[in-house]
Each structure stands twice: as C-alpha cells, then as structure tokens.
Amino acid sequence: MSNTPAAKPGILDGVRVLDFTAMMSGPYCTRLMADLGAEVIKVEPPEGDYIRLRAPRREGRSTYFAQLNAGKKSLALDLKKPEAIALIREMVSKCDVVVENYRPGVMKRLGLDYTSLSALNPKLVYCSISGFGQEGDWAGRSAYAPVLHAASGYDMANLDYQEGDVERPLKNGIFVADVLGGSLAFGAVQSALFRAARTGEGDHVDLSLMDAMLGMLVYECQEAQFPAERRRPLYRPTKARDGFLLIAPVSQNNFEALARGTGHPEWITDPRFAVSQDREHHWGELMQLLDDWAGPQSAAECEAAMNAAGVPCSRYFTVREAMQLPPLQERQAFQTIDDGSGPFQVPNPAFRFARTAAHARNSVPALGGDGPALLGSLLGLSDERVAALRESRTLHVHG
C-alpha cells in the first residue's frame, strides 16, 4: 500500500504558530498542528531542544526528535539578547498561535507573556503548558512526566491494581502525562482559534499536566471520594502455551459467548458465574478456568476462538509487532519520513478527515536551518541584516 498521502489541503493551512516548546508535551501538541498544515516555527535556543540528543540516533540525528517535530521549521535565537526578543515581538503580529512550555514566569521575564504579546496581536491564541498551572504554590516546580505520574496518584492507583507482593510503585518509561497534556493542549488551541475567528479576540490557554492526569483517572477520582465495598475485578492476562492474551467479557452477552467459545456452556448456568454480581465474587476462579482452557493452546488459537465467538480479546503484542498489524497498515497509521539519515516511520494522528489532510509531513528541521529564510520572508530582513544577527550570535544556524 502506498505511503504517499493524497494531495489534500490541511484544515490549518495558513495558520502560523510560534512554538517555544521542548521535550515532549509541547512538541506533541504542535506536531499535531503541523500534521494539519499549520506553519509551525520552532524557536530553539542555540544548543537546540534537548530531545535532539536523545536515542535512537543515526549519524547524529535523533528519530525521537524527528517524530515529535516532523513538519516544523527551526529558528534558533539567543533569547538572552534584546535583539532576539525584538524579532519575536515583530513576528507575533504575523502569527496566530504561540505555544510554550517553559517554567511559569520565564516568558514574562522575557517580555513574551500573553499580556505583552496580545497587546501586539489581539487575535493571538497563546497556550502555556506546565506541570501545575501558571499560578499557585506549586507553579514553579519542575514537573516531568514521571513526577506527575507520582504526584497525581496515577502510580499508586496502578500499584493498588497489582496482585502479589508488589510493594514499590512500578517503573514506567511511557510518558502518559506528556502525550495526554499535549493532546488536550492541541484541542484547547483549536477551540480558541475557532472563537478568535468568530469574535476577533484571542485567548490564553493555561494547560496543567497535573489536571490532565487527574482528569484521566475517572473511576479512581470517584472511588477516592466514595470507597467501594470491595475491589473491582480486573481482567488479567490469560496464559496460553506460547504467550498471553487479554480476554474482556464486559457484558452478560460477552460472558455467555465466552462460555460457548471455550466449549464450556455450563458456565452460563453455574451459580458462581451466572450473573455479573456472582462473577465478581468468584472472579479469581473464572480467571483460573480461562488459564486452564488456554494453557494447551497457542495464543493465536485462543484469540481466533474468542474473535469467532464475538468476545473482546487480543494477544499481547510488542510495539514492533503491533506496527505491522493489519488495521494499522490498512489505515496507513504510519508515515515514512526521512531526516537526512534515511527513511523511518512515525505515527500519523489517530483521526482522519474526509476532505482534508492529517498526516506527518516529510521534513525534519535542522537546528536553526530555517532562520535566515524566515526572517527574510516574514520580516523583510536583508541578507546583510541576517548576516549581522549571525555575527552577533543572536541568530544561530546549524546544518
């Protein structure tokens, strides 16, 4: 199947974004905007976004960085220099959105906060992403995703769901807070852009990653206020001969289909399992019976039997395996891009539009590589002026 997207306009064609974000949450948000056609200008310090140094790397280029920043342009400025701040302020009148994830207070000290910039462009949508919000006792705290997983209760809730003698919160290398927060920031920016288009008035989005994490813990927030009489039953991995699968009979119909699909229709009338409340009381016994059924078979055979019966089920796949699964291939869920060190795949947005494009763009910016052209086209700076900015180390160009 071809990986070349059909030529369609982007919903955000013509929208220009100044992107003062680094690491993951902010870049995730602005990558989605670039996927929809926005011109995203990533304003980086002279040394660049730290993620540029993170593995996996090939020939000095990070594919981790590339996935988060595909389709953007890079402008490397030393914001400690007043002339760099003046350039940014001049650019703001030609932009629609600013996104930043500095620690609260940094942009204000630079004179680049919402109040300062909205005075130059009243339609500006300005999004600030932080760990705990822009104000309050915790606003100044450093807040990387693992810290937020700990602070929000997420890690302790996950620990409480484990079985056996697990005494310490589990390690987690998947940065849920960043991806969740970046996704919510993306949605909030689109809402503010819609309002700006209707009213001519921009807005300031204050996105707290802590708030995002608590918003995700739907059952857990309610159970914290109204403790359940007993632990709710959880689906657990069923062990087959060569691996594991997850079987999730979420409804009465699912359970009855499960009983028939495993060749045990007698479970339907078994007083331990006949209705949902009884199954909850005998959950461990039901899970053990599933292990007994699956044990002699391969995980693929078990999955096929459950799918044939109409029971929600999947084998456990690695990410490498999942990337090759038919639904992802059929939806063209991945885009092939090339950062100069060869082609590789990055995920497209999870959503599709019938009339417009939503996919990763095949370009990865070299640090500061777009600076001279941007300053010339947006601000009309001459080659001599650009050369002077480079000479003064205000503007940096690499690659």
Rank of each mutant, 00 (worst) to 15 (best):
A66P: 00
A188K: 08
S62E: 00
R231N: 12
W283Y: 10
M306G: 04
F226S: 12
F334T: 00
F132Q: 02
T4A: 14
M23H: 12
E229W: 12
P5I: 05
A139E: 01
P56G: 05
W293E: 06
L36Q: 15
P349H: 13
E220K: 09
T30R: 06
L117P: 00
A248D: 02
C302I: 02
A366S: 14
V40Y: 04
P237I: 03
A196N: 03
R195F: 07
D338L: 10
L207Q: 13
E100G: 04
T356D: 10
G342C: 09
E223I: 15
G10I: 07
F273N: 01
G60A: 02
Y64L: 01
A86I: 05
L18V: 08
A333F: 11
G111N: 00
E100P: 05
I51H: 13
S2C: 10
G261R: 02
K123F: 08
I11V: 15
R393T: 13
E47I: 10
L184N: 12
R52A: 01
L246K: 06
C29W: 08
A299Y: 02
E266F: 10
A224Q: 13
N158A: 14
G369T: 07
Q329T: 10
V166C: 14
G14K: 09
T63P: 03
G215R: 02
A84Y: 05
R355G: 15
D383A: 15
L389A: 08
D155T: 12
G368I: 07
G181A: 13
E301G: 01
E135Y: 14
G140M: 07
L184M: 15
R16K: 14
A248F: 01
